[in-house]
Design a protein around this nucleic acid. Structure first.
Length: 452
RNA sequence: GGCCGGGUGGCAGAGUGGUGAUGCAGAGGACUGCAAAUCCUUGGACGUCGGUUCAAUUCCGGCCCCGGCCUCCA
């Protein structure tokens, strides 16, 4: 099935043609590890996880690299404020990040390189840029010369003049050109630093991605992803560095996910409405529910995170798991969810894929013949698998973490009451369980229960 | 100020030059002791003003509103 992706570089949806179909390569900007992952961090993780799963179905080999930025002024500031070492903070935050990402059912990337372990590669790249006249030293810094990059600005769609005219930040006096940016900056003894030809210092923000992408994916690769806010300056600068270092094309398809809002407002520290994955989990929102909320809006659109949206995602998963539970005794047939694949191959249209899954669920609920059930069950499971959903059993989804013994005893008592036509007692037991968040469902074959 | 994206029914959210996705919520019905779940039926939309067209929610332009970026925020 042909895949089409919206390419930020051309501002068009294009058919995806890999450089080497036997070795598809993707790089996604990962977290800066100084704090717990919030839902804005979770969005690209989940979105590009779906793309990764899709690519793995379409191509025999996919290499997915997602970096970890573990040197950054925000980390340094956090360390200074909390009186903790940088290593303690980054180590803990990486552990937390992995925990959170696992609850979101995101697959691990093939490579997850840390910036601090690739300083040598960065230095080498900066040296090459200097040799080629794309970079210069000034006041202990090394700066990238934007004027030397022929097509600088094509990714973000802005001219150098516009950027300089619109700049709100004072231009450092040592820059030859106001648009030039830092490749390497000096570090005083109290800040993290590495020895380099330009003295003890630390890398600028963009060079780590250029260096690590080059190391693991080569001069040029297929897909580069990240949040929309990274288009400028991060990806524009990263692209300029890489193109100037290696000559030819860098990335074929640039993909950017939209911004996330909370209850209609921008999510920001100043508004105090930042929601972390951890907070949601502690409130009892399942990781799978979080994942579905993030996939219920097309990745390119802004996503408004709301309580209502969380409830709706939970309801959708209840519906899917209910359909699955009803056919627990029917083995799934191995079929491809072609509607879902078609939707995802159309620029990762997850809402359309979910609509198709709803229709499959309805058909499954209606099916009477065993072979229809087997086929539709297979279709539902295949489609949700690409989306990374329905990864658990209905049993675990509906009852996970609940002590069932007491509930089973009450259900047995209620069944006895019903058999004796004592509906007042039966309803009393049902209401008592409902108070505890347990919903009963009577059927011809017995009484089922689930948590709300 | 410059650049970019968006405005779809009560809500969420796709899509399309001409038969109005999908889900939730609402209404009615089937099933049930009553529920729950499930199934069936059903009302309801394309910010605004113009233009192109036989025909526009869909293409073009103006306007209004919302969001984002503009040197280190995913």
């Amino acid at each position: 099935m042909p895949l089409a992706l919206y390419n930020t570089l051309t501002r068009r949806k294009e058919s995806f043609v890999p450089i080497d179909p036997a070795d598809v390569r993707m790089y996604v900007c990962g977290p800066t590890v100084y704090d717990r992952a919030h839902i804005g961090n979770a969005r690209p993780v989940v979105v590009f996880d779906v793309l990764y799963r899709l690519l793995k179905r379409l191509y025999p080999r996919v290499v997915y690299v997602r970096n970890i930025t573990d040197v950054d002024d925000k980390i340094t500031a956090r360390a200074a404020a909390g009186g903790r070492s940088i290593d303690a903070i980054t180590g803990e935050t990486i552990r937390f990040f992995h925990e959170d990402v696992e609850t979101l059912n995101a697959l691990s990337p093939d490579v997850e390189p840390r910036a601090t372990l690739h300083i040598a590669e960065m230095i080498r790249m900066i040296e090459r840029l200097m040799e080629q006249g794309h970079a210069y030293g000034a006041a202990g810094h090394v700066l990238f010369s934007v004027a030397s990059a022929p097509d600088y600005g094509v990714l973000s769609g802005r001219s150098r003049e516009e950027m300089i005219a619109g700049a709100r930040v004072e231009v450092a006096p040592y820059k030859q050109d106001p648009a030039d940016f830092v490749l390497w900056k000096p570090s005083p003894p109290d800040l993290p630093g590495w020895d380099s030809p330009w003295g003890r210092g630390r890398p600028g923000w963009h060079i780590e991605c250029s260096a690590m992408a080059h190391l693991y994916l080569g001069n040029s690769f297929d897909i580069h992803g990240g949040g929309q806010d990274l288009i400028f300056p991060h990806h524009e600068n990263e692209r300029a560095q890489s193109v100037c270092t290696h000559g030819g094309p860098f990335v074929r398809y640039w993909l950017h996910n939209g911004w996330l809002m909370v209850e209609g407002e921008k999510m920001s520290k100043s508004l105090g409405n930042v929601i972390t994955v951890r907070q949601l989990l502690e409130q009892g929102v399942a990781g799978e529910t979080i994942r579905l909320v993030l996939l219920a809006t097309h990745y390119h659109q802004p996503l408004d995170w709301t309580e209502a949206g969380v409830r709706q995602a939970k309801g959708t998963l209840d519906r899917f798991y209910t359909a699955l539970r009803a056919v627990a005794d029917v083995p799934a047939q191995a079929v491809e969810a072609t509607e879902v694949m078609g939707a995802l191959c159309d620029d990762l249209n997850t809402p359309r894929a979910l609509a198709a899954l709803h229709e499959t669920a309805t058909a499954l609920n209606k099916a009477v013949h065993r072979n229809d059930k087997a086929r539709l069950k297979g279709e539902l499971l295949d489609g949700t698998a690409v989306l990374g959903l329905l990864a658990q059993t209905p049993e675990a989804w509906f009852r996970g973490g609940t002590d069932s013994t007491a509930i089973e005893i009450l259900i047995a008592r209620r069944t006895a009451a019903r058999e004796g036509r004592d509906f007042a007692e039966a309803d009393r037991i049902r209401d008592a369980l409902r108070q505890k968040g347990i919903i009963l469902e009577d059927s011809a074959t017995g009484t089922l229960w689930r948590r709300t």
